[in-house]
Design a protein around this nucleic acid. Structure first.
Lengths: 209, 209, 209, 209
DNA sequence: AATGAATGAGTTTTCATTCAT
DNA sequence: CATGAATGAAAACTCATTCAT
């Protein structure tokens, strides 16, 4: 049918990959279109055949990165529906641990998006949606934990927020000091701490008031 | 005869305030020196009387912001040495809750610094030091909790990292969705969750395997 | 298919020509890059495609101008090796006379280079080399005059310096007052004066004391 | 009468001295009013009490420098009216030799003025007048040499131009390469060469044709 | 489809000049 | 008289974007 296969999509992701690489290294502002073109092995003009502007590329990266992230979580949560939630959480921890190699170089990009969210409505809304879904997935997991009697009858929403915050915060701390914050070990330790609490059983106060 | 009072320090902080305001609104690179000058009620030239360059202003903000933050925590941890650590943590939570008004507009700036840390050694080192001190303060608090028998014999370092990550992560989530993440309530809830754990007492496993 | 011809060299000399024109008219620092761009019929940005900076253009002019000048002298001195040196000197005079049309507008540029030589080592060294070669060429000519018995046994170096100085000085005086200093006539007269001396034959003292 | 003596003139020359120093070191453009103020030990504002602008200072320097120079020549030429002109010329040479210490650092300034003359009528006219007087003084000297029978019946104007050019040219060459051009020796040698000529007596052609 | 030469609006920084004290 | 803080016009340089080939 089509004598030459459509290279359009291939080119677009070729450019996207290059852009991610360059942006991660230099930041959105300091990265030049020339840098991206060179990294992609294309001419500067070619970039504009596939993306309308630098901002369009940045927008595409926003979608791509967080959608990838979301897919991973979705897949994970959807997968195992029956085992122990505690075990599943520790598996998630494992998955996050492994994902860090990939995420590490992308973190500066993520931070720039967070910064931009403060002044660009569309970016703000996109991230809002992302985190909403992220929390929803975790909330469902937690709800199952409660239903299965593994967890106390906490508020799943509030707890999902706590868990999400923990992951994001740990990623930041690891990014800033990989020596002091051993990613794998810390993830496991923090997750267990959240599961088990700081307070010894016998002195534990009633959760309300 | 009447020596004009030295306005140097006043001007510097006048400019710093203006710059923070403008950078928070527009980001480091979209903000022009003219914007800062206008916000400060000075001429562009005056800026250069007190700061060598735009980058110098940004560097001054980095120091100023995180040092302020650190001071607040230091003061807090140093203050009350004898009461219940659990109570003190809830007070810290309260203090953080109140600080959010101030922090809120500064968060885009913080995120830009995190992003920049990826490519600027000096920024990276500064933040590393900041978080190290932050964790150290919390670790001391936690150690006291353990000593006083309020907390289980957890690793204070690891736990301090967890707590710091929790705060940072919550701030991010609140920043992205203040509706869904009620700052005050969430802070309290998350802190209590960490103290008490997710797992019901009677089913709680031993912390290690 | 049809590879566009490399316009790089063409552009560079196009810009150089324009820059010489503008610098001669306005001086190095009063001339703006826009002026050069306009004179060259290019955009300001195009200038930077071919020269890194304004200083780079100035440096290129330095080399171009004095190298041109040197080439002319080299060619002249190399050309006629057998005739009377006196005749050849008068021919050189003639050549200089004709070159003045071209040199005239470049003299302000030359003076700026002399001024700059006082504070820029590289310019200083370049000019040093230029004048060294210039004197060497003339010294060879003079030596031949001595060898052929046309000239007294003067020191060729010292005499070459004298001749070079005379040319440079005359150019300055002509530049300042073309009315009072008739270039062609003055060149001839000065050269002859140097050849024949001021002192009448019979009263001439011995060269020493 | 005047309780406080007028410090105005003192200040003006204080500033002029400082400006000459700074301009010689940095050039007209690169030298900032602050530099001059600092060198003069005054405030920037004080400069403007005595000179209307940077250009006014530059103009004052132009007048000062060349007038000084002129005075020296005038005084010299006016002084001895009766001895041998050849001897007087050698004395002038001696005086020039001694003046070089002072002139040396001023030469970049002189060159800048020559450059500026190309685009500023007033500077041009001033220099024109300066060189006219300079030549007139020398022409008178030469005329006397002719009258006294020391010199051939050359054209005094043309010869004065030659002599002036020689001095200016030698100064340039010395400025560019003080090693190669020994000022004192070269001045003497060049002057003698001009007096005695290159051509041996017996082969000397008739000056015309 | 692809190229890369050319454009020119936009930004930081400098510095002569002013003027309140 | 003297000061030096403040001004703002000016200029070099960058780089996203366009478009002729």
């Amino acid at each position: 049918m089509s004598p030459r296969p459509d290279v359009s999509e291939e080119r677009k992701s070729q450019i996207l990959d290059a852009a991610i690489s360059v942006f991660a290294r230099l930041g959105f502002h300091q990265a030049r279109m020339d840098d991206i073109a060179q990294e992609a092995g294309l001419s500067k003009g070619a970039l504009y055949l596939y993306y309308k502007s630098k901002d369009t590329i940045i927008a595409a990266i926003l979608k791509y990165l967080f959608t990838q992230e979301m897919k991973a979580l979705h897949a994970f949560v959807a997968a195992e529906q029956h085992g122990s939630v505690r075990a599943q959480l520790e598996q998630l921890t494992q998955q996050l641990a492994e994902a860090m190699n990939w995420m590490r170089r992308l973190m500066p990009i993520a931070f720039e998006f967070y910064a931009i969210a403060g002044r660009q409505k569309d970016v703000h809304l996109f991230l809002q949606e992302y985190f909403k879904e992220y929390r929803a997935d975790l909330a469902r997991l937690i709800q199952r934990g409660i239903d299965q009697g593994e967890f106390r009858a906490v508020d799943p929403q509030t707890t999902a927020i706590t868990l999400t915050a923990l992951y994001e915060g740990l990623a930041l701390l690891f990014f800033v000091d990989p020596q002091a914050v051993q990613w794998n070990e810390q993830l496991i330790a923090s997750t267990r701490l959240l599961l088990d609490g700081l307070t010894p059983h016998d002195t534990r106060e009633s959760p309300i008031h």
